[in-house]
Design a protein around this nucleic acid. Sequence first.
DNA 1: AGCGACGCTGTGACGGGGCTGAGAATCCCT
DNA 2: AGGGATTCTCAGCCCCGTCACAGCGTCGCT
Lengths: 248, 248
Amino acid sequence: MRLLVVEDEARLATALQRGLQAEGFVVDVAGDGPGGLELARHGGYDAVILDVMLPGLSGYRVVRTLRAEANWVPVLMLSAKDGEYDQADGLDCGADDYLTKPFSYVVLLARLRALLRRGAPERPAVLAVGPLRLDPARRLVTLDGAEVALTAREYALLEYLMRRPGEVVSKTELLDHVWDAGMDTAPNAVEVYVGYLRRKIGRDVLETVRGAGYRLSGAAGAAQAPTARVPAPAGAPADTGGQPAATS
Amino acid sequence: MRLLVVEDEARLATALQRGLQAEGFVVDVAGDGPGGLELARHGGYDAVILDVMLPGLSGYRVVRTLRAEANWVPVLMLSAKDGEYDQADGLDCGADDYLTKPFSYVVLLARLRALLRRGAPERPAVLAVGPLRLDPARRLVTLDGAEVALTAREYALLEYLMRRPGEVVSKTELLDHVWDAGMDTAPNAVEVYVGYLRRKIGRDVLETVRGAGYRLSGAAGAAQAPTARVPAPAGAPADTGGQPAATS
DNA sequence: AGCGACGCTGTGACGGGGCTGAGAATCCCT
DNA sequence: AGGGATTCTCAGCCCCGTCACAGCGTCGCT
């Protein structure tokens, strides 16, 4: 675990560094606002301990700048000000915790641990088959980066197929899982919706296996792995390859 | 946002409930340890405010039980004990924050906001989606810089949506988190309030995904550009028509 | 080549999801 | 206690999504 301590008071800074290193952390120290900001930007720390009163740039501004740059590193603020509004201001600037000096080292450690526990929230995986990507959380389907607008039934059908890439899925199975099992829908409905899907995602990805069912294969285009679970880009901007949407 | 307050002192509990409801939260209250644990288990809360001294089951044990069951709901602990080891113990049991009584209501709110931020994949202090900006601390919403007056329900709905930009949020989920779960509100209420919101913030930002829910279009790049934002095409004059415009 | 079964698609009707105006009930402020 | 704001239900309307039907294309087997 890598920590950054931004504190101008040299004695406190070294005391913190020593103590935290003894706990097994890797600790860097910055002595002023601009330096701390620069380190926090590119240092890849797991958490930052940030004093408010700093030469050059206040802790408030440092954390605000980081958040404006979409940097969500956990920040624990230290301040001599114990006014309730000082504390609220610090937290509302984007800090995750706030301790007033003088503070207990035991408490600092406990709060730091609590902060690190809540590290990076994991995002669910995205289904990917060939040029297709399906994000269940956002209910978003993209084809070569371009968003595809799907109706509820089309989406449900595609999701079911994408969870079984390369497998042949029979029409009855699709009727059971994608359509309401209670209703006895004609198998033709599946064919109809396969048609709709093909019209929107291309003819090659969704293959017909005569007499057996349908199969989704990533054989089309420049795809190497037929299936892959790729983690969603955590903070990175979405790769909207072109125009944002294509509503038909 | 749904909160659970576990506090046996009736006067404090109702005061908290009132105050937090006024902020737009949906608040349930439990008066003892076992009751609070049961509610926290199945209530689907966005955060829990938990007293330590509770009849039946201490706050420590409640949070430890929750964590043992892999329930990671954010927990803010309240305690009359201000000893440093009490605080450290509470945090190490799995609580995310710790406040000693008597506490400042302003600080409680700020820490609650920080806690709710931590759960989200991105944690800006000010939420921004397209031309919209929402400042939870000031409870202020602006559209292209102009303030927008929202009622409590409208605000809560918008905040919930803005915390998940680009994601499709179902009506049931909105009913669970923005409306009081005890009442079985008709899903139409969501449609009605979406209509109110659209009249105030414009029709384009809040998109309907038929059969699935609603989505706040993060079309203009959700949260990456620090400051530079291309001025909107300004095609249609924002028809902030009638609607119960009101301020306090 | 011929035949039959299977699959695809254009057309259109139906149902239901979603939007809105009106109004009742409730809350809050004065 | 009164009045206004707010919340939420209800009923009507519109329009999109769903799916049946029927005709045609296509595949495979003999």
